[in-house]
Design a protein around this nucleic acid. Structure first.
Length: 1061
RNA sequence: GGGCCCGUAGCUCAGCCUGGCUGGAGCGUCCGGCUGAUAACCGGAAGGUCGUGGGUUCGAAUCCCACCGGGCCCA
């Protein structure tokens, strides 16, 4: 027997269900249940396996799972191969940590072989952890066939793409200023840079550049990176703007007119005089003395236009001095300007951020150390106008947090110009959720996208497949592993990873020289970016790809707009000329309870496994989904997760309640279907049957629109409000009926139907508890697991908007009645003689009439009286009260007499008379007559003492609290029943067990009044009652005494007959 | 500096697209009740300048503009 434990314990549920799934191979059967049906293809964005799954990852994975389960249940053959992103800087950093090393030099020291082996081991470990965690979370992907970006078969797709681009001219090498992380010693792509902006405090210095012909005259520049001054080659001005020459003491300073005030206040210049004014254009060509010319000797050989003023449109009048220091080696814009004017590209800093020999006096210093020395030197030379600090946003390495520096270096790029328009057009065809994520955000990003720097000077990654001849410089691209076999020198066995691939040497086809591999590895975003064709091994067999591509659905967090969403589109545009996905669901992050970003340094990271341990998989899943739209951030608050647990506990209780009575009566859901029992259905049955079907329709349409939170909330609301609060409350008494009446079975059928419809829908959100409960309710005709059920379709024939409307009114009546009872201190178990309902509208009236008996039942009233719309009960007393403002002046001292007379006359008569003739002659107590006019009085309504009012949205309810003997004894009987039930409960008796009881009540007269109701009490409590008789049964007795409103009650319950005493 | 999202009760969120009944819900708090689903459940109450200021309109939480605050993305 599948009895339900008394409380919902998620640990127990998860354990049992997980065992059931694994023993019956449910995951595989679920994934294969629609083989051959139309395909729904999903492309898994591969998580980087450098660490454990945290709650943010879990959120994303829950959305994936919900969609995949839904599409599966809808009947699609869902493609859901897993995938793991195995390479790249993040993994390297983790390996470094494990090996306790921290730089590229250290890697060379321990040897690349060892490093790469360790990387493999680390990846193996985390893949295992991620799979375990994901499966526990319920995300059912095809993990056995999961793609791994480190596999040679996978990497060959990257090579294939690059070779194609090499041949088409889309892959180019060039010198460029790129952002470097000096700690990781590798350049970052723009989408990596985009992820690392942080607010920091930096130097803010104003520096004087003396003009060569007139050293008292200085150009003033502003910079936040003093160390780049060592590589200064020019000063740029905006030729269109006006500049001024200031006299400050003996010096003359040149700055932009528009920035005059801000510079003077920032640099603390007072007492100046404007002596000259000219356009920026007139400054062009002016030669200046390099402020660090003597310290950095290389500048001696730099010929004009080096160290002169150049025109540049980008010079802004928003900040700085209007004169911009130009270091072509250290700034992208500087580089471009330098290229236009033929400036030397001077870059005296290595990729590790340390000045080289070219750096002269700064050689051997890190850029940070150099910055201080630069400031000191300038200060000594009298060229430092002002040193300050500024807080601004500056890009940092997205993985290690080191501030980036811009350096010139030789890098490999994928050119965007050929495909840019195509990408924009293709993106417009993609369905984005929400729309703005695609149109505004991604669209804007695409408009501004630049060439993609794909080379990285690291170790653990897909190697760049370009070999260059050491003699003549010609290059070749290698497109596959097999091609490596053609090499002149090669290791055995050949491996595609570094360092082995570096040992492959080709013979140059042009000059016969030796060709060595370009020592780069590739941006890891390129690895995951080719997943659309690499994950299905396109190179070896294109058939699968052709069935899946473009993918129906992908979903990742919003940061992937610039990451994976972008690189997928980029490579797909290059390879196939179209977008690789049709629908993108954008998600957002999980923040901590206080809205703070979770980070290891802050120590507030919540690991998915801890969350699952603490609050349960189902609770966490439902919480994450129901809290907000997927594209909004959520603050994770454990207390709120517990609320979800409470709601699921209510569902548990409902099933437990149902199951108890189903078993008791051997209810047969196969024969006693809702269709068979429909003729015996009560209004509440027809209502819940309609509600559940309306719900399914609503949930389905919300899922289709990716309004998952709305779907989840409507489910929760249905469980708590409709199913538990309303329906179970309504059918409880029917369930308690002892005989197997059709009306009871009709309720069983309705409840069984509702649960059987509900659980599969719920299972995509909370698979564990849904499965657990499904197991207790499924019939022999049902699939073995809830995960193998088809998505329920609403039974349109059961949808009945009319009864849903009517019930809304009925519930309103019930609430209003309970409200009135509460005020009148009339407990629900004390029956009411009658309630009177005054409806607000014809619709409310007809609803009340239709559900009259339901309302009687639920309010414990003998009768329901329905008035006309807006009508008051006839017992409402109407009184005339004087309006003293009007009557006072006229009646004077007679006012009390008038008041008294008004209270005596018949209200209707006075009203009619006044309405007809405008006046009424009032006979006062002293016999005199007083004329009252319209407006002299008001009509006030007063309820008689036996009526108490309660107000609802649709009705006003008056309860009649007057009592008679019959009502009183019934109330008493109910009090007795309740006490006996408490005792049964305390003894934990079986529901069906019948026990003998002695009930005695003081005073005797009250006990007498109970006599006719003994049978009723016996029926309700499954007891055999002796009233006030002998105190001993001669067995073991449980006895309790109670004080009721009007009497003292004592109940003795016989436990075991005939056992001693 | 530019783009996008958000700002409604103590907390978490609906409502806004398509202007109109007294701006809702859950949780929390307080009061009361109920009790064979029971570490549940029900009723009631308190609690809101709908971020601020303008504008459009007979009417604005809702549409428009500006500003303030928070977040994200880009410079």
């Amino acid at each position: 027997m599948y009895a339900l434990p008394p409380r919902y314990d998620f640990r127990r549920v998860e354990e049992e269900v997980a065992r059931f799934w694994s023993e019956n191979n449910i995951q595989k059967r679920h994934m294969e249940m629609n083989k051959g049906a139309p395909i729904f293809s999903f492309l898994e964005g591969p998580p980087t396996v450098n660490s454990y799954m945290h709650i943010g990852h879990a959120r994303g994975r829950v959305y994936k799972d919900i969609v995949l389960r839904y599409q599966t249940m809808k009947g699609f053959d869902v493609w859901r191969r897993g995938g793991w992103d195995c390479q790249g800087l993040p993994v390297e950093l983790e390996v470094e940590k494990k090996l306790n090393i921290s730089s590229k030099k250290d890697i060379e020291l321990i040897g690349m072989e060892r490093f790469v082996e360790e990387a493999h081991r680390l990846v193996d470990y985390y893949i295992g952890e991620w799979r375990k965690g994901s499966e526990r979370l319920g995300l059912w992907l095809d993990y056995d066939a999961a793609y791994q970006t480190r596999d040679e078969k996978y990497m060959e797709h990257v090579w294939h793409l690059l070779k194609k681009c090499y041949e088409s001219g889309d892959l180019v090498v060039s010198f460029k200023v790129v952002p470097f992380c000096p700690r990781c010693e590798t350049p970052l792509s723009s989408h990596e840079v985009a992820q690392g902006y942080e607010e920091v405090e930096d130097y803010s210095i104003y520096v004087k550049f003396p003009v060569e012909d007139d050293v008292k005259k200085c150009l003033v520049i502003w910079t936040t990176t003093p160390w780049t001054l060592a590589a200064n080659e020019a000063v740029a001005v905006n030729p269109e703007e006006d500049y001024v020459e200031l006299e400050v003491g003996k010096e003359r300073l040149i700055i932009a007119e528009k920035l005059l005030e801000s510079v003077c206040s920032n640099a603390g210049i007072t007492g100046y005089r404007v002596v000259n004014r000219f356009t920026g254009g007139s400054l062009v060509g002016l030669k200046y003395i390099h402020p660090l010319g003597t310290e950095v000797g290389a500048h001696g050989s730099h010929q004009p236009p080096a160290h002169t003023v150049l025109p540049a449109e980008f010079v802004s009048m928003e900040e700085g001095t209007g004169l911009v220091h130009i270091a072509p080696g250290h700034g992208p814009e500087d580089f471009e300007l330098g290229k236009r004017h033929g400036l030397p590209v001077f870059c005296p800093i290595g990729t590790n951020g340390v000045f080289t020999e070219e750096g002269g006096r700064f050689a051997g210093l890190s850029y940070r150390e150099a910055a201080e020395l630069v400031i000191k030197t300038l200060s000594e030379k009298g060229l430092l106008l002002k040193e300050g600090r500024v807080i601004h946003t500056y890009p940092h390495c997205w993985r290690c947090g080191t501030p980036l520096i811009y350096l010139t270096s030789r890098q490999w790029f994928l050119r965007i110009d050929r495909i840019k328009r195509l990408m924009i057009e293709e993106n417009a065809k993609v369905k984005w959720y929400p729309v703005w994520a695609g149109q505004s955000r991604f669209g804007e990003w695409l408009e501004n996208a630049e060439d993609w720097c794909i080379s990285r000077t690291r170790v653990w990654g897909t190697p760049l497949n370009i070999w260059t001849c050491s003699k003549c410089g010609s290059t070749r691209a290698v497109g596959s592993k097999a091609e490596l076999e053609e090499a002149e020198k090669k290791p055995t066995p050949i491996k595609m990873h570094r360092p082995w691939v570096d040992r492959v040497v080709f013979r140059c086809g042009k000059c016969g020289g030796e060709m060595y591999r370009e020592p780069f590895v590739l941006d890891t975003w390129l690895d995951s970016g080719v997943a659309h064709f690499a994950s299905v091994d396109w190179l070896r067999d294109k058939r699968l790809f052709e069935r899946l591509f473009p993918y129906d659905f992908i979903t990742e967090a919003i940061d992937q707009t610039r990451g994976w969403f972008y690189t997928l589109l980029f490579t797909s545009a290059l390879m196939f000329g179209r977008a690789p996905y049709k629908t993108v669901l954008s998600q957002n992050f999980v923040l901590d309870k206080y809205g703070k970003k979770m980070s290891k340094s802050r120590g507030n990271v919540l690991w998915a496994s801890d969350a699952m341990d603490n609050w349960g998989v189902d609770n966490v899943r439902l919480y994450l989904v129901s809290k907000a739209q997927s594209w909004e951030t959520i603050n994770f608050d454990p207390d709120e997760v517990k609320q979800i647990n409470q709601a699921l506990n209510i569902l548990w209780n409902v099933v437990s309640f149902a199951k108890t009575y189903f078993d008791l009566d051997r209810y047969d859901p196969v024969k006693e279907t809702v269709w068979a029992m429909l003729g015996y259905a009560e209004p509440e049955d027809r209502w819940i049957l309609s509600r559940v079907n309306t719900l399914i329709r609503y949930v389905t349409s919300n899922i289709e629109r990716f309004e998952m939170h709305e779907a989840a909330r409507s489910l929760l609301n249905f469980i708590v409000e409709d199913l538990s609060r309303t329906y179970v409350r309504a059918v409880r008494r029917r369930f308690w009926i002892e005989e197997r009446t059709p009306k009871k079975i009709a309720a069983y059928a309705a409840l069984h139907y509702v649960l059987r419809k509900l659980l599969p829908v719920l299972s995509i959100f909370t698979p564990y508890i849904s499965e657990y409960l499904y197991q207790r309710l499924k019939t022999v005709d049902d699939p073995i697991s809830v995960c193998l059920v088809k998505w329920p379709r609403p039974d349109e024939s059961l949808i009945n908007p009319e009864i849903e409307d009517q019930m809304q009114v009925a519930e309103d009546v019930i609430t209003a009645t309970l409200n009135a009872r509460n005020r009148a201190r009339r407990k629900l178990r004390w029956p009411l003689r009658r309630i009177i309902i005054s409806p607000n509208s014809p619709r409310a009236k007809s609803s009340v009439q239709a559900l009259r008996s339901y309302i009687e039942r639920m309010t414990n009233s003998f009768s329901v009286e329905v008035l006309e719309v807006g009508q008051k009960p006839s017992e409402v007393l109407r009184k005339l009260v004087p309006n003293p403002a009007r009557l006072g002046p006229r009646a004077g001292k007679r006012l009390p007499l008038v008041s008294e007379a008004l209270s005596r006359v018949r209200v209707g008569e006075v009203q009619d008379h006044v309405a007809r003739s405008g006046r009424y002659s009032l006979v006062l107590g002293d016999g005199s007559i007083f004329e009252i006019l319209d407006g002299d009085f008001q009509v006030v309504e007063e309820l008689p003492s036996h009526l108490v009012e309660g107000e609802g949205r649709f009705v006003r309810v008056y309860i009649d609290v007057s009592e008679d003997e019959r009502l009183r004894s019934l109330s008493l009987a109910n009090e007795v029943i309740r006490r006996i039930q408490v005792m049964r409960k305390e003894l934990n008796l079986e529901i069906v067990k019948e026990v003998p009881c002695v009930v005695s009540i003081e005073p005797q007269s009250v006990q007498e009044s109970l006599k006719p109701l003994i049978e009723y009490i016996e029926e309700e409590t499954r007891t055999r009652i002796s009233l006030g008789l002998g105190r001993d049964f001669g067995g073991r007795v449980y006895k309790r005494e109670w004080t009721l409103e009007q009497a003292a009650l004592s109940v003795a319950m016989l436990l075991e007959e005939g056992k001693n005493e």
